[in-house]
């Protein structure tokens, strides 16, 4: 399945900035879209637009990784602290998203240094199609040298490196592309049910062409697809004309102090 991304014959060269050289002369290169399979052997950064967008950015990273290497294993590296912040990765949810959880190796590491070291090893090993590294907050260790090292490891291992950042300002790095990801309002299903996950991508930095492109993408059967233009978002639920006009009571509920019911039932 990798024949698309790997050029064959004498033109085969290790992944490097070669496409940039080819595109330098051409006037208007096609703006890249996250819906296209990302080239392997490159480092990409995905920034969550805000802390609340971190789950969407994670899902986007997974979808990009799954599309770039359809039948290879994917590694996800995260910190112990992230398990508390966004919760643990949930297998049924992954399966629903279209990524079989058996393809995933998870590493929950104690600190940033361990994560970056393990990430470099995994990238170089040629045993994984994509390696996701999730880092929340500003990270002092993630400087230009480190990202260059990651990019070289990705090229050496012909593996897609995805750096997933949240609550952090972009710092100079040797990433091939830097995307900003936010979750977008979905197109409602029948009876005002939340629809397929929707994402808003913005290309913050691009080594091989212009940046600044924005993409609205939807999830469809395990893939990212461009959003169809006719997407009128239903206005606020309270103002929808077909909402029942019956009087409804609404009660505020206090936060309970006792154990959650899952623990009680156990």
């Amino acid at each position: 399945m990798q024949t698309e991304s790997t050029p064959s014959g004498p033109a085969a060269r290790p992944a490097g900035p070669a496409p940039a050289g080819r595109q330098r002369g051409s006037p208007a290169p096609e703006p890249p879209s996250p819906a296209d399979p990302a080239e392997q052997g490159r480092l990409h950064e995905l920034h969550a637009a805000s802390a609340a967008d971190a789950p969407s950015a994670a899902a986007a990273a997974l979808l990009v990784a799954a599309a770039s290497c359809p039948d290879r294993a994917i590694a996800w590296l995260r910190l112990q602290a992230a398990e508390r912040r966004t919760g643990a990765l949930y297998g049924p949810g992954l399966a629903d998203l279209g990524l079989p959880p058996e393809r995933l190796l998870m590493a929950v590491l104690p600190d940033e240094l361990a994560l970056l070291k393990a990430g470099t090893d995994l990238l170089k090993s040629r045993a994984f199609g994509a390696v996701l590294m999730e880092l929340h907050g500003p990270c002092r260790r993630l400087d230009l040298t480190t990202s260059r090292r990651l990019a070289l490891a990705a090229a050496a291992g012909n593996c897609l490196a995805l750096l997933l950042r949240a609550e952090a300002d972009p710092v100079p790095s040797s990433a091939w592309r830097r995307w900003q990801v936010a979750s977008a309002p979905s197109r409602p299903l029948a009876a005002l049910a939340p629809g397929a996950p929707a994402f808003a991508f913005e290309l913050l930095r691009n080594r091989a062409g212009p940046s600044g492109a924005r993409h609205a993408l939807d999830w469809a059967q395990g893939r990212l697809v461009p959003r169809a233009p006719d997407a009128p978002r239903a206005p606020d639920m309270a103002e929808t004309p077909d909402a029942p006009a019956l009087p409804r009571t609404a009660l505020p509920l206090p936060v309970g102090r006792s154990l959650p019911p899952g623990r009680r039932a156990a």
Partner: peptide, 19 residues
């Protein structure tokens, strides 16, 4: 049409105030 289970699961669940 859409995933029915979340990608991340909070364990234990966190209490919320809901109207």
């Amino acid at each position: 049409e859409t995933p029915m289970r979340p990608l991340f699961l909070l364990d234990p669940p966190e209490p919320v105030e809901v109207l």
